[in-house]
Design a protein around this nucleic acid. Structure first.
Lengths: 149, 149
DNA sequence: TATTGTTATACTCTATAACTATA
DNA sequence: TATAGTTATAGAGTATAACAATA
């Protein structure tokens, strides 16, 4: 038996996947350009962004960024050379090094975020109900997802 | 004057940006892992995905992927060596080379998409209304965005 | 003159394997 | 033995500049 007619046509998974890909491209492009304005690569921008929440050991950082631990050495080396992060020996385990943002590093990541004009404008254009709905749908759809941003 | 109390608390732009980063990061992780199962890098997966819509000149491909034209040479070289794409001289402009998927290339990109289980399952869990709403919100938020997927 | 694709170059990102110093 | 960080290595991605062929 036929269902009740809908106002909106059905959206299939393939369509949503495609839209998700487009959305990711737009967001990532905005992020990459904002990072470039701070003379940062996308990976460096992501790293600083993760560290904005607080210090993290090299290993933890690698896990958060979904890359091999050996990559972190060079990545953090380059950021440290520019004075954006600092390595600090862990007080409790002498094998561990904690990485933290310097004041300059904080400034850089904040500036990066502030210059993501395209995405910011797009989100600002939504009204309160729409923002709440989008928040709810994204949370439910990607709940528990590892943060690779 | 205070507004009418809302059932859902207000979601600010910074929160939505963070959630967007997490959600799209989850999508990207799923894509990257699916590409790896086909022995493809994320960039190679994106390239094949774009070519799935039809042939494109080197230059156009570079624009679509938001990278410099000089990168395409090596990228397409590697895919061509594996028999996933093919270069074909343009009949109308002898400077131009059109790139197209081989049958094996089509198989690879289709397999890649089919193995994005995490994202597929997440989207399948939404009901029709929710899917339509998500589609609407993402479209409006990232409308007219260049496809860099 | 302008454009397309390529080459040369340099740097960054990435994974694998082996090493060191701790635990 | 196991783990944290590093090093060495190799391959892939990326941008800039210069080039040959063609428009």
């Amino acid at each position: 038996m036929p269902g009740i007619p809908r106002a909106t046509p059905r959206v299939d998974t393939a369509q949503l996947m495609e839209l998700l890909a487009t959305s990711l491209g737009a967001y990532y492009g905005d992020f990459t350009e904002a990072a470039a304005r701070e003379n940062l690569t996308a990976s460096q921008g992501k790293t600083l962004s993760v560290l904005r929440r607080g210090p993290a050991a090299m290993r933890v950082l690698a896990q958060t960024l979904s890359c091999d631990a050996s990559n972190m050495t060079g990545l953090i080396d380059r950021l440290e050379k520019r004075g954006l992060v600092r390595r600090e020996p862990s007080p409790t385990d002498r094998r561990v090094k904690n990485v933290l943002l310097t004041a300059e590093g904080e400034r850089a990541v904040d500036a990066l975020r502030a210059s993501m004009h395209t995405t910011t404008a797009a989100l600002d254009a939504l009204d309160d109900d729409e923002r709440a709905t989008l928040h709810d749908l994204l949370t439910r759809t990607f709940a528990g997802a590892k943060d690779k941003s």
